[in-house]
Design a protein around this nucleic acid. Structure first.
Lengths: 242, 242
DNA sequence: CGGGTAGTTGACTACGTTCAAACAGGGTGG
DNA sequence: CCACCCTGTTTGAACGTAGTCAACTACCCG
């Protein structure tokens, strides 16, 4: 894989001055600790829309945090089946498989032109010896990964299609808000097929339900731009006993 | 929670002499390392069928490995929805939420009378400083937990009911084999409702499909006892493009 | 402007759920 | 020891949700 890399020496990419500082790894660290962490992030990678950041089975040597753009992770099974297991936005960390496996357990594909910070495995181990809070941070990340996929299981296992879509919209609304963007107007980065796949639905069902929500005045949607018009209605849908 | 505990002082429960040694935590450790690990397991807990080992939201202070019996973990959502996220057999470790969260993220309920080894959080941290391989072991466990739930996502998101049941049977067959039991005849510990819930199906659908598999000669099933009669047929069902 | 991709909508089908009834097994008490 | 109950399981019939197939439309990019 020959991806263009940008050295850290230069300038702007330095954890201490990163606008995502509060969201990314350095959460809760002192200035000194962030300094140490910054030595971990030696370079960034740019990948174009549709390209792979890493592939299932590929040797896992680093974890990544997103600076700009977005990425989906998906499993591919025998022949046809695939399943998207997550969408990652700026400030979020992916590739945690690298922490204990030799190889990545999923494919990571850019949904748009994307830039990620690279944190090499062995550097992580090294630095975490001097920054105990980093140990903890990594565990937290692993744990939130487990928690996230359990929530998704709950969604796929027991919710109707409308409830899944509503949950999805509310989740993204919340995550964009957390990023500092508007929680009531945002841009979905993925197409209908990806949304459907993620939620265990077809793209047609996804489209139909989004249209229905629009017709009922809960949202306004055109292409990938979503406006939440009636958040309570969406919450009601999720909470209604089918 | 007043669960009967048994001291480790006594005798038989000692990692070095445990029949599950090869499956449980000490995988790949030297005799000396196992000795150290054994000091971690200070006691066992017995829980009866239907009782909780731990509850969602409860303070998480330990992880557990099963000595005998079996346990299911499940999430409970607003009012009615629940989702079983895993079934655990002897030698398998659960409660990993404890590693970084203050509280457990799921409920753990015994499917039968069960006995578990208790590994206290703070002891784990302490010992893992002297047994680096333990660090790694813990990461492996977290990772296999993620991997497992991703496989389940793939199952719930893209497989038809018959494929899910076939996958389920093959998975359990493999795990019992790994435990040293027969891979073609084993005892499901959970009822049809639990199987269905786990796989995102109703108990009726589960029952119907098991009956169908029996009619077609793929399995013999009565109550919870399963015999695999035609493993290849089950594999075919999983691999068939719906 | 044209071609290709992404999204929408409709009609039909099928899979799995729901509701209901009957049945089997296991344990308890008379 | 049998009658009884309770729980878990099986099976049937009707229904409804989401999938499939297909046609059409909107949008984006060269």
């Amino acid at each position: 894989m020959n991806k263009p890399t940008l050295s850290n020496e230069s300038s702007s990419i330095h954890c201490a001055s990163c606008s995502l500082r509060a969201l990314c790894m350095p959460c809760g660290m002192t200035t000194h600790e962030i300094e140490q962490l910054a030595t971990l992030v030696k370079d960034r990678i740019r990948i174009e829309k549709g390209e792979y950041l890493f592939r299932l089975g590929q040797k896992a040597e680093a974890i990544y945090s997103i600076r700009t753009g977005s990425i989906k992770t998906q499993l591919d099974n025998h022949q046809n089946h695939k399943q998207i297991t997550g969408f990652f936005l700026p400030g979020e960390v992916l590739g945690l498989d690298a922490l204990s496996n030799d190889t990545y357990l999923s494919n990571a594909i850019a949904l748009e032109d994307t830039e990620v910070c690279v944190m090499k495995n062995h550097n992580l181990d090294q630095i975490s010896r001097h920054v105990p809070i980093l140990q903890n941070q990594i565990r937290q990340l692993l744990n939130s990964e487990i928690s996230r996929s359990h929530q998704l299981l709950l969604c796929l296992g027991s919710l109707k299609a409308e409830q899944r879509i509503a949950t999805f919209l509310l989740d993204f609304s919340g995550r964009f808000a957390h990023l500092g963007y508007s929680s009531h107007e945002f841009n979905l980065r993925m197409n209908r097929e990806d949304i459907g796949n993620f939620l265990g639905l077809t793209l047609e069902t996804t489209s139909r339900i989004l249209s229905k929500f629009q017709k009922e005045g809960f949202i306004a949607i055109q292409q990938k731009t979503v406006r939440i018009l009636n958040r309570d209605a969406l919450k009601d849908i999720v909470n209604t006993a089918h």
